[in-house]
């Protein structure tokens, strides 16, 4: 029972995980992007449409990433090159992305993904895994999942290695911490910002695609239902760290399905209140995070500041 619940929590956490990573890359280069929700929706609708057309999972994911990044490109052009206010630009991206997804999605309503597409994303079953005592069922939470979930874990781990062990990772952290210093050190700040905002967009697109291709799987209006926003909060909760993001995503994935589970157990709990849970939990997370401020838990110092080399 618990194993089953945790398994579902991992699944429900996967779109969050992608979105957290996406938001994290934005913030690590100093850009607070509130357009996560919009980019997720763009990815969700593009991925779904591509899947219907091509019947090919790679093409579906590719399109999800491309459209997520296209949203990010608008944001990057405005905030980095034209130095607009990041908050308002991000909000606009969300409005724009939501509108575009809704607009295009109307044609996709009621469509079903072909069976031979969906079979690519069936959970794997690993032989003998359950025969390992204690560890077996535990591992199955993470391992007996579909390939998309695997992709999420791999993305998180690769992001971590990239961020903390590589040269570009060091440079990108520098850009977020002090853009002017990074620039003076010879880092091409504009390029770093563009690349990582776009990368973030691609990850958000994947997060959206997981919802429309695997989780639901069909097109629904507002399919993300605020997950993009929860991700923005969870970046803070997980201290801009991709490894911690895995834990944060699973935790909130669990909260997301809690209501569902409890109802299926015939425990009389109000479903509307249960649906408030993730939002309420996010608020609590933010409040707790702000009350106990530790030095390890501070955002990149140049987060939200526009940068212009010749500003005096």
């Amino acid at each position: 029972m618990l194993i089953l619940f945790l398994k579902s929590a991992v699944i429900a956490g996967t779109p969050l995980l992608f979105a957290i990573l996406g938001a994290m890359f934005n913030e690590r280069v100093g850009n607070l992007n509130l357009g996560i929700e919009g980019m997720m929706l763009l990815g969700a609708v593009a991925g779904f449409q591509a899947a219907i057309y091509s019947n090919n999972p790679f093409i579906a994911l590719l399109f999800a990433m491309i459209f997520g990044s296209l949203g990010a490109l608008i944001y990057a052009f405005l905030t980095v090159t034209l130095r607009t206010n990041q908050v308002v630009t991000g909000l606009t991206l969300t409005i724009f992305g939501t509108g575009l997804a809704r607009f295009h999605g109307q044609k996709l309503m009621g469509m079903v993904l072909p069976e031979d597409f969906s079979r690519h994303f069936k959970p794997l079953s690993i032989p003998f895994l359950h025969e390992i005592p204690v560890l077996g069922p535990f591992l199955s939470i993470f391992l007996e999942q579909d390939l998309f979930v695997y992709l999420g874990f791999v993305s998180a781990i690769l992001s971590g290695i990239y961020l903390f062990k590589t040269r570009p990772g060091l440079n990108l952290r520098a850009v977020g911490e002090s853009t002017a210093s990074a620039d003076a050190s010879g880092i091409n700040v504009t390029l770093y910002k563009y690349i990582h905002i776009l990368l973030g967009g691609a990850l958000c697109g994947l997060g959206g695609a997981y919802l429309s291709l695997v989780y639901v799987p069909s097109w629904q209006e507002n399919i993300t239902s605020g997950r993009g926003w929860i991700a923005v909060a969870l970046v803070i909760f997980t201290s801009w760290n991709p490894y911690k993001a895995i834990g944060g995503a699973i935790l909130f994935g669990g909260l997301d399905i809690l209501g569902f589970r409890i109802q299926s157990l015939n425990i009389p709990v109000n479903q509307y209140f249960l649906r408030m849970m993730p939002y309420l939990a996010t608020i609590i997370v933010i409040i707790i995070g702000s009350i106990r401020k530790s030095s390890r838990h501070t955002p990149p110092k140049d987060l939200g500041n526009p940068y212009f080399r010749e500003e005096r």
Partner: peptide, 27 residues
Amino acid sequence: FFKARFGANETIMTLMLNYIAIQWITY
């Protein structure tokens, strides 16, 4: 209150409260 006292991020809090309000009225 939490912004003024502890510097909590008001953007996300106000947004989350939107969703809670919607659920409340739907209920």
